[in-house]
Amino acid sequence: MSLLNDTGKYVLLMKRVLVLPDSRKMFFRQFPKELEKLGLQSLPIVIIISVFIGAIMTMQTKLNSANPLLPSYTTGLVTRDTLLLEFSSTIMCLILAGKVGSNIASEIGTMRITEQIDALEIMGVNSAGYLILPKIVAFVVMMPFLVIFSMALGLIGGYGVGLLTTIITTGDYISGIQYAFVPFYVFYSVVKSLFFAFIIASVASYYGYYAYGGALDVGKASTNAVVNASILVLFFNILITSLMLN
């Protein structure tokens, strides 16, 4: 019952969000700020996690596939495909669901409990559209760049293992990441990330927008936003994968 109620409220909220802004001037003033806050400020975590995961994935793959029957390019190939297919889109989005989702939910939730949203409504502003639309659009626009950036950095991380350790040679690694490359995998990952970006920004906004009570409740809204956005990301991951890769 609660799920149905939440779904209905979410759909009705999106109906208010996905309309032309009351003031385009205000939208385009807000939009770059959101690009910076949700996208550029996520770069450090994307850089750190992608480089390290790329490196660790290379090391783990190499150490767990020490079989003379496997060709030398296996490690690079596995690292590349894992990064392209899952890590840089799905896992990175789950991490961003935590960072960006909690940021959005707590910001909008605080505005709700301090009556700033009521103030917007009393002024005759479509508060949902004004607050949420720039966030969704900005995050959806930024996400493909973050995903492609993460792919590149993950591959660089793996290359670093070849350079700095004796686990794998850079030659084997490079031939592995070049072997049987399927460009469609990049497209597939980018498409997935667009859906995930929409889910993260809209679900987090929903929990923030309907927060009530005090600071503790904003915290709860933030937690609910992250948990539910993550579950939806995983669910849509299966759905999109079965549609695009089968």
């Binding site: 605080t110 505005m111 301090t114 009556e115 103030a119 005759g124």
Partner: peptide
């Protein structure tokens, strides 16, 4: 549209942070 004719002072001021 009517609300554009309305001003409101909230208990906690509700200024935009």
């Amino acid at each position: 549209v009517l609300r554009r004719e309305v001003g409101m002072l909230f208990q906690g001021s509700a200024l935009f942070d």
